[in-house]
Every structure is written in structure tokens, then in C-alpha cells.
Nucleic acid binder design. Structure first.
Lengths: 123, 123, 123, 123
DNA sequence: GTGGTCTAGACCACT
DNA sequence: GTGGTCTAGACCACG
């Protein structure tokens, strides 16, 4: 589990965990019936509160991506990777569209928006 | 002052006010030395607490967009177009960066992100 | 009455009026039994609210520098110019001392404080 | 945290808190990454509203002296000595300027003001 | 009338 | 537990 927490960005930690586990499932690095690290071990590994990891796992289970078996652990559910991919793509699309619309409301030209985008993407 | 409060979204009310007043300044609907509605009248109009409006006005003043005169009112500050443009550009940059980072967390390649971006921008 | 209002500084307008009339009395430009401009005329002249002028006159009367005769006007009281001078000097002394002490608390050297003072006085 | 609130003076409570925390940082009693008392605990300790403490903390963060992490607490920011020194110098400058202006409003000559200043500084 | 401060308590999100 | 927002109402100072 190579999960990276960015404490300085404004995305909540539990959401970063959810996003990255979804990504691992989509890419096939986590397959159906694979077991996730325990709440405690992951919290130790990431040096964050166990409650935060728990919140992420709860969210994943609520969305149907995992199944928790009491006393045993949390397992990857029978996931529809295609569906997941489509969902994530749509989420990204929505975010990008919202950003672009905001830029246009601000009177920033499409050319400027594009160059800004490329600047960030290239790093 | 046509300010619209969306209570159902997660953006704080005072921030919605700040954004919309900035927008009015940018679009020239509020000009230098124009007076903003009083804290109390706007709070009455929007049916929200006066403190919430005050918080918005404090934020605007802190960012240099307005000047408050005790006992008189809050006025649009001078020479803020440049400031506003820079500010908005940074805001757009932050939004784009966040979207890109989310895409990467989802394991979507930069190429895919770029093509999605172009699709939205062109479409 | 050459009273100058500085709207941009943080001293309340009514206090500026009080200070300057005290100064006129001290310098002998306003003598015992001289009549002050009416509230209305001074408010017109300074382009400020009549209530603000009234507040200044009330303050002066409260401190014993003027006497108001209903229906006639406001007159300079039998003033003790020496006393006034001493009072104002002490007030200035207190302000300067407080500023110097604050600077020292901040760890700023006397030399720096002095050069800052000279800069402001000359500038 | 030995913060003392003076209810009888006209300086707002939140500003007194801001000033004293800045002072603690300047004197090194609060170092980089130190955590400030929580809003609630300080409000309990000082027997004031939590909102008042929050306003002080917001001000400190706005001025770059602290960093607030949601759900964790408020921490002393890095590299603020320079900032603080500049800030304090400006504060002293404002106080001195105000004193000088008051002296001039009182009709006291610059020479008199200077000699008074020197008297206090040397004395 | 205006803005400035403060209270006491509520509900929410994050850890 | 933490901070973040919001309310409804109070009192003060300035114009």
C-alpha cells in the first residue's frame, strides 16, 4: 500500500486515502477479495489517527468498494472496474469544468487558462 | 446588490458574499468609492446574521478591496483591478492544480487528463 | 477658525476639533468670551455632520473650556492658559513615553527609535 | 500561556490576545511549530467567548504568524522573526506619528516636541 | 444611522 | 477532542 498523505493541501486526509485506494482498485493493484491493511497498521504507517483511517474505510464500504468482516478485516468487494473508471473520470471532468468556468467568469481567456493548465501539469 | 446565497452548498455564506462582491468589482458594477450596503441592511436583505456579513466585509478589507470608515460605511478601495486579476489568477491556478492532483491520485495519466481538459475547453 | 480635518487618520473627527480649539485657546487666537462658530456653520464649513461638531462642543464644555448659552451660542470660558498648556504638554509627554516604552519592549534600540522619530518629524 | 486580559481598557480583547501572543513569539517563549492552546481551552481559561479567541487566532493566521490545521490545532508558523520585527517597527512608527500629529494639533512647535522626546528618551 | 466588539450556544467537519 | 461557521441579541463608539 503506497499511500501518500499531503498534509499541506486542503483535501481532507481521509478523502486522500479513499481516492488512492479507489485508484489502486481501478489499476488492478487491489483485486477482488484482497485484504486491505488493518486500520491500526495503516494509521501507524501513515502516522495519522486510526479514526481517520477508519473514516476512509467506512466511506469505501459505504460506496460499495469494500466489505468489512468483523474480527477479520476489510476486503475489496466485487468491484466493477469499468464503472469505477467512468465515475472517477466524471469526477475529474466536473472539477476541471468547474475550474474552467470559474476562469471564464473571471474574464480569463481560454488561451491563458490553457497555458496555466500546462504550466501546472508540466510541473 | 444582487447577491445570491446558496445555503445548500458547502461554501460558507461569508465566502459566497466575498466572492460575489469581488466579482461585482471586477465587472465594474462596483466602482472605486462606491459604498457597499451597510452590514445591517445586507444582513436583513439576505436574511442572515449581521456578524456573517461583517465577517465577509472584514475579509474584503483585509484583502485590500474595500475601506471601512467607522460610523460611515464600507467603500470600494482604489486601484484594485490589478490586485483582483492577480488574485483570481491564483485562485484558478489552485483549482486546476487540485483537479490535476486528484486525477493523478486516481491513477489517470497526464495524457488522459490533458485530453479531458482540452475536450471541455473546446466543447 | 482654521480647523483642518484629517479623514484618513484614525483620530475621531470630534477629537480633532476639540484638540484644535484647545490649541487656539492656548495660543490666544481664541480669548475669553469670544464666540465660537455655530454648530451649523462649522459643520457646513468642514463638510461634516452637525452632530459631530455638537459632540466636540459638548466635550469642550464638559472640560470647562467653553460655556454654552441657550439660544445665543458657545463662548470661550475664563480659561487658564497656563494650565491648558501644561495639560497638553503632559498629554503629549504621556503619548511619547508610551511609544518609546513600547519600542523598547519590542527590543528596538534607542538609536533606532530616535532616527525613526526624526524621520517622521522631518518627513 | 500567561495571557492577561484588561477588561477596563479600550483595547479589544482579541487584540490584546494577538499582541501578547506576538510578544511571546518575539521573546522566543513560543517557538516554531509550538502549538497554541485550543480556542476552547483558552476561552475557558480567560473566561471569555470562544469566538473572541478565534478572532484573535484568525488575525494571527492572517498576518502569517500561525498556521491552523483543521481538527488538530493552531501552530506557530516558521520564519516569522523578520516579519515580526518589521511589523513592530511599523507599529512604533504609527504611534510616534500619531503623537507628533497630536502635538502639532495642540500648536506645540516641532522644536518643543523634539526636546520633550529627547527628555523622555534620555531620562 | 453606521461599524466594532462580545456573548452563549448551536451544528458541522476533521482527527 | 479539534477548528469552522452561524445565530440572535447585546452594548459601545462614531457621525
Amino acid at each position: 500500500m503506497k499511500i501518500i498523505i499531503n498534509n499541506s493541501c486542503m483535501v481532507p486526509i481521509y478523502e486522500q486515502i479513499v481516492d488512492q485506494i479507489k485508484s489502486l482498485i481501478r489499476r488492478g493493484e487491489l483485486k477482488e477479495n484482497d485484504i486491505l491493511p488493518s486500520v491500526r497498521s495503516l494509521s501507524r504507517e501513515l502516522k495519522i489517527s486510526a479514526l481517520t483511517v477508519k473514516k476512509a474505510y467506512d466511506s469505501l464500504e459505504g460506496q460499495g468498494f469494500t466489505v468489512t468482516v468483523h474480527g477479520k478485516g476489510t476486503y475489496v468487494a466485487a468491484a466493477n472496474r469499468e464503472l469505477l473508471l467512468e465515475e472517477q473520470r466524471k469526477e475529474l471532468e466536473a472539477d476541471l469544468e468547474q475550474a474552467i468556468q470559474k476562469g471564464r467568469r473571471y474574464g480569463i481567456s481560454d488561451e491563458e487558462i490553457r497555458s496555466l493548465f500546462e504550466l501546472i501539469l508540466e510541473g
